[in-house]
Amino acid sequence: MTRAAFVLLAATGSFALLAGAFLFQALGWAPCAMCLWQRWPHAAAVVIGALALALPGRLAAGRVLPLLGALAAATTAGIAVFHSGVERKWWQGPASCTGSGEDLSSLAGGALLPGGSDAPALVLCDSLTPFLFGLTMANWNALLSALLVLVWLRAARA
């Protein structure tokens, strides 16, 4: 495969994961704060992929942009691994989106209940919601993003 093919595969993978996240959100799976954090590096990887395909060989795009794509994929994989650990109570997550309640005191009780206020319901980052084969969306994102890191690195070496 050519470098362009690997870049296209990696960028399309990030696009698919991002599109899937938005699709499941539209179907009623509200994202937590860490879920939203995981989307930004995927969006960056899509833009990096588009630039790498539009600027092949120019401005060091040959190796630099695929390495930046790998960094973006590694970033979202890292956030997803952290989120996975928070979901499984392996470590503490941010107080603003976990059940510790430290930063939740400013919310009215109705804000914590679906339909209880005009604001969207708060989705806690530490709630374990299996999605497919006992794995959560964060677990799947960690695994698939790690694979995308390998694809981006292969693109850099091609």
Rank of each mutant, 00 (worst) to 15 (best):
A74W: 03
L53G: 01
M34R: 03
A19D: 14
P66V: 05
P56F: 00
F24W: 08
G57Y: 00
T129V: 12
V151L: 05
I48R: 00
A44L: 03
T75R: 01
S106H: 11
W40I: 06
L27R: 08
L23I: 08
L67Q: 05
L104E: 15
L71D: 06
P120E: 14
V64L: 04
L51R: 01
R157G: 09
L135C: 10
G13Y: 02
L53H: 00
L107H: 13
C35G: 02
G99T: 11
L17H: 09
T75D: 10
A60P: 01
D118F: 08
A121S: 10
F131V: 14
M1E: 13
G115M: 02
W90Y: 12
A61S: 09
A108H: 10
G99P: 09
Q25A: 11
P114V: 06
L71G: 07
L68T: 08
V149K: 03
E87K: 04
L59N: 02
L144C: 11
L144G: 13
S84G: 10
V81L: 10
P41E: 04
F133T: 13
F24L: 10
L104Y: 13
A10D: 05
G115R: 05
M1H: 10
D118T: 14
A30K: 07
K89V: 07
A74L: 09
L144R: 07
A45I: 00
T12V: 05
